[in-house]
Computed example of a mutant assay.
Amino acid sequence: MRISAAQRTENENRIRAAMDRLLRGEIPAGGKCDIKTLASEAAVDRTAFYGARPYAHLRVEFERRLNALREAGDIPDPRQAQITRLKTENAKLKERLAQSEQTIDDLTDFRTQSLARLAAQHEEILRLREAGSETSRITRLPASRSAAKVIGSCS
């Protein structure tokens, strides 16, 4: 079905108005900043934007303006901006989690090594005490109460 020049001009005006709304971020519920939503907002068949159809030049203009906004860092589709923000946040959180896990592994290793060293030192102290008690020339001093508490808490 052919349309008159007046109808075509009216459709182009509706398309340009819908294009401006979408690029300002006025995205309808369930829509995106894309040709499908542009066609539905302008009440024009979507196929009219492709190939040698009458509104292909408007599709090119829409995509050019959309790409210019994206390059400038302005994303008109709030959902797309949210997706981008959440992906960035997710990547940062994954990095923090990996760092936390590495820190936990390092501290666990340190704790294990420290406990092993303390146990070895304790065994050495007990061995030296035992060796010292066998020699009759060494007089053992009585342990103070605070020292006994410290030694008892290390066991």
Rank of each mutant, 00 (worst) to 15 (best):
P76K: 06
R53A: 05
K36A: 15
I75F: 01
A91K: 11
A120P: 07
A131F: 00
D109Q: 11
I83N: 04
L69N: 13
R96L: 12
L107S: 06
R140H: 14
K92M: 06
D109W: 04
E124A: 15
R53E: 02
Y50P: 02
K94C: 05
D34E: 14
I15M: 03
S114M: 14
S4G: 14
E71L: 07
R2V: 15
T139G: 07
P142I: 05
N90D: 05
F49R: 03
A148L: 09
P142G: 08
Q113M: 07
K36I: 07
R111L: 07
D109N: 10
R14S: 15
I151C: 03
G30A: 02
R64W: 00
E26C: 04
L58K: 07
A5D: 11
Q7F: 12
H122V: 01
H57A: 10
H122C: 03
D45R: 13
F62H: 00
L118E: 13
A5C: 10
E89A: 12
V60D: 05
R24F: 04
D34S: 15
A56G: 06
K149A: 10
L107K: 08
K94I: 05
A29C: 13
L128N: 06
A18F: 05
G73R: 04
A81H: 04
E26H: 10
Q82C: 02
Y50V: 01
T88M: 08
A131H: 00
R70G: 07
L86W: 09
Q113N: 09
N13F: 08
F49C: 02
R117P: 04
A5P: 06
I15V: 09
T88S: 12
D106N: 09
Q7H: 14
L93A: 15
S133G: 06
R8T: 15
A116Y: 03
E123Y: 01
L118A: 14
G25M: 13
I138E: 05
D106A: 10
L66E: 02
G30P: 02
F49S: 00
F110C: 11
L22I: 09
R8A: 15
V44S: 08
G73K: 05
T108I: 11
E95A: 15
R117T: 13
R127S: 03
S4K: 15
A52G: 08
A131D: 01
R79I: 00
N13T: 15
T9P: 02
S100R: 10
G25K: 13
R64E: 05
D77P: 01
A6I: 09
C154W: 00
M1Q: 12
L97W: 11
S146A: 08
F62M: 02
L86F: 13
R145T: 15
E10A: 14
A98G: 09
I104N: 08
D105P: 03
A48T: 12
A98Y: 05
R2A: 13
A119V: 12
E71H: 06
S146L: 01
T103M: 05
R53P: 00
D106H: 04
V44G: 07
M1T: 13
R117M: 10
Q99D: 15
C154M: 10
Q82D: 06
A72L: 09
I151T: 10
R127G: 01
R79G: 04
I27Y: 04
P78H: 00
S153M: 09
M1E: 11
T103R: 07
F62Y: 03
S40I: 12
E63I: 02
N67R: 09
G25T: 14
L69A: 09
R21M: 09
E123T: 09
A91R: 14
